[in-house]
Design a protein around this nucleic acid. Sequence first.
DNA 1: ATGGCCCGTAGAACGGGA
Length: 266
Amino acid sequence: MKLATWNVNSLKVRLPQVLDWLAAHRTDVLALQETKLIDQRFPVAEFAAAGYHAVFAGQPTYNGVALLSRADTVGPAQGVVVGNPLFPDEQQRLISADIAGLRWVCAYFPNGQSVDSDKYQYKLRWIDALLEWLKPAAAPDAGTGATDRTPTVLLGDFNIAPEAIDVHDPAAWDGQVLCSEPERARFRALIESGFRDAYRLFEQAPKSYSWWDYRQLGFRRNAGLRIDHILVDQTLTQRVRSCSIDRGPRKLAQPSDHAPVWAEID
DNA sequence: ATGGCCCGTAGAACGGGA
């Protein structure tokens, strides 16, 4: 099974690129962030024509998330949950569902703007609530004998570069939003709760990033950050066969500033 | 040079992104 996450920075603008990418890669599950579409304008018919079911949660102007699932392989999503039951939030940043026997959590973490802003405090609270909600989902078997838990994939735009190797200029970014210690501590807390960073299960080229600033020729200079992630719980770790970042779409005209991250799971 | 670009909502600039 092939799965991927992609912050498209407006699905209206990027729909042709997403359809092209799906046609080329035949991904089974694709998680999208920053669709920036109200639900009435989600391109259900276009994805259906391409062979994909879609579930989504949008709002005007900002945010918006979706899970696409390939009709002829994994079928439609079941048990859709929008948002975090522990964190009432008008911002549409989370959608989760069962597909192909796995639990999928598509997440668009808050950006945080700057470490001294209210948005940063919201970001930390938002992640704390996500940790609280997902803790049972990722925990290793605590000896209770319970083995009926659905394996979970947490994927999306985390807006956190977990380590210095995920940053093109660690000194410049030190302590800044996306790289600050409180954010990184929360990413580590996700790992400690039982998730694994699929990308780091494999040897990767140095200077591998998933986002590049539109300004200053960021992509051309590879001045990027790795902030888009696929996390799998421990029961899934052995089933992950590969994980890569596809820089191709970032080279297109009118690209998203994020590249898709994809993985293969047995 | 502390801004540069891109998107949505506008119907001109501005908030937000990261």
